[in-house]
Nucleic acid binder design. Sequence first.
DNA 1: CATATTATACAATAATGTAAATTAAATAAA
DNA 2: TTTATTTAATTTACATTATTGTATAATATG
Lengths: 112, 112
Amino acid sequence: MKKTGIGEFEELVLLTICVLENEAYAFSIKQEIEQRTGRRMNISAVHTTLYRMEDKGLLTSQMGEASSIRGGKRKRLFSATTFGIKSLSEIRDVRSTLWEDIPAFVLKNADL
Amino acid sequence: MKKTGIGEFEELVLLTICVLENEAYAFSIKQEIEQRTGRRMNISAVHTTLYRMEDKGLLTSQMGEASSIRGGKRKRLFSATTFGIKSLSEIRDVRSTLWEDIPAFVLKNADL
DNA sequence: CATATTATACAATAATGTAAATTAAATAAA
DNA sequence: TTTATTTAATTTACATTATTGTATAATATG
């Protein structure tokens, strides 16, 4: 397999980038995911993932304006490419069709 | 991260097992996924994945009845555990909330 | 000069793939 | 009715690749 080549974490990162619109940079992505999932992660893990996904063509980036309140390096802002969004969408469709096709009794006793 | 520890392929396998109910064994799982995704895969890749997921507690298995039309070894039938179903459900919830929170214009021009 | 952030390089672990051996059942043949 | 043959699958052991994690250095900005 490995056609899409998008891992669990990568998928969360990409979706989060979409949610954050013009404010998607490593730190804000990290925080958003931590808040939504309750899991902690290293900022560098986010960075490596972002760069890898850029190589794969799933997202692009550009440097943001220099306008921090305190000093600091400029933010690198990320956004999903069309290819990235399509990849997200495809895997979502496959999964949701599968969910629909699960007989109800299979999910009983799992108190979802 | 890695709390859930469920890969892209693993997730498809587990969902497919749920869909196939009492007829989920390596071969039928492989075929069902191939048919739904269009991607080909090695039967052994399915097997290793199944065993690994059993170790993780995401599914269980038992040998089926000997009732093939032609000869052959008995099928090992797989089913998702409660833990497996909960894991699927959790990650689905996180993703679908993210999807809901994506501003519409971000998805424009991607012709989904 | 303090600080917020990126960037880089490497390490660890996890996921996936492949090939070959093995097993059990059904059927055919002796 | 015993033995051999074919067949549908599993099982095992290992190899490869992909994903995720960590630590440290570098850089730009107020």
